[in-house]
Design a protein around this nucleic acid. Structure first.
Lengths: 195, 195
DNA sequence: CTGAACTGCAACATCAACGTATCAGAGAAA
DNA sequence: TTTCTCTGATACGTTGATGTTGCAGTTCAG
């Protein structure tokens, strides 16, 4: 019985939990060893291997589902920071902290190079756009140089967040502290105060 | 005949080339698909699968060899920039450009999380130290804030280089231009000039 | 309560990747 | 030229991952 992503009927409550558990455990296991087998993942999740196959037709399907799940959470993390309405500096800080928080829990998935699932791709694009928009507002508010390349800015911002996530993984630092460091570095760099 | 890394006699010239070709092709193929089989790699390299096995006992051995090869090149790229003697700003720019150049050709290998081969680990540590040292000199020269956290600085520097590499992969920009952007962003950030 | 959904277990089939061995021929190296 | 190394081709055996099926027992939902 080949199971596809779309279902005629909604999952039962316990099955829903099983799915979520598998997704979260898979993230952890694959984060430790990207070549881990589905059997290992199933065992770590405390379910039979057949159950995993029942929910996810193949390894690819599982990873795709993880991507959708993760990117939805990231998008949510951005949205609650009101990127369009909150004062740019506030939104910048808040969103940075939120994203660091969420992405820390989905390092493997988010780090995957290629997105196969169209829904994941769509979510990723929305996230991309929202980040761009946020930086655009920051620029218009004078937080970024008027002549700054927004594409480069977005990349730098992204890279700084990645670093913050690594720091968090190693030292369990408060997300707000990290967000402050990210924003400060993004805007001011590490050079001396200029007169 | 299980072949180990150490050999009694040096490789013949043509065999030496074969090894290098395999390493370089493996980087490219695995970069496109990290799950590519050894057979695919061998085919792409234009050698028989048995030849690949002759030179590299296992998949792990191959990847380890790639790591050693790549990190040696990165170290070389740093060294020619005279990180200990050249004026800090010059060294910073030069080394940044060199490293971007080299790392661009070894994205997959350098991006690998865990280093098994002790030689690769050693090289990585030396690189790590040299980067730290460079930033330390930069700080003493007043390029970085006196109170800047050098560990965070190193991370940021590293992250910016990674981004530059991605830009290069997509737009084939001149390494010097990218290095300038990296150094400028590192020191000044993207915020407006402060009075 | 009762049917439907869900899970674990066991068994099975397939298959690709891996690793090894052998040998004949081509090609460096001396 | 002669020796030794290297390579390609072929063939084989092993193993682990993957995917499927059937069924019996459990648990949710209405």
């Amino acid at each position: 019985m080949t199971e596809t992503t779309t279902r005629d009927r909604p999952l039962r409550a316990d099955a829903e939990r099983t799915v979520r558990t598998i997704l979260e455990v898979a993230e952890r296991v694959l984060g430790e060893d990207p070549t881990a087998s589905l059997a290992q993942i199933a065992a770590a999740a405390g379910v039979a291997r057949t159950t995993l196959h029942r929910r996810f037709a193949s390894r690819e399907a599982l990873i795709d589902a993880m991507a959708v799940h993760a990117f939805r959470q990231v998008e949510e993390a951005i949205d609650v920071g009101r990127p369009e309405t909150a004062p740019p500096l506030v939104a910048l800080h808040q969103i940075t902290a939120n994203v660091i928080q969420v992405k820390s829990g989905w390092r493997y998935t988010v780090g995957q190079p290629q997105l196969r699932d169209p829904e994941a791709v769509a979510a990723h694009e929305r996230i991309f756009t929202k980040g761009h928009l946020l930086l655009d507002r920051a620029q218009q508010a004078g937080l970024l140089r008027p002549d700054a390349d927004l594409e480069w800015a977005r990349r730098v911002y992204h890279a700084l967040i990645e670093q913050a996530i690594q720091v968090q993984a190693e030292t369990a630092t408060d997300p707000d502290t990290l967000a402050a460091a990210v924003v400060d570095t993004l805007l001011n760099g590490l050079g001396p105060e200029r007169s």
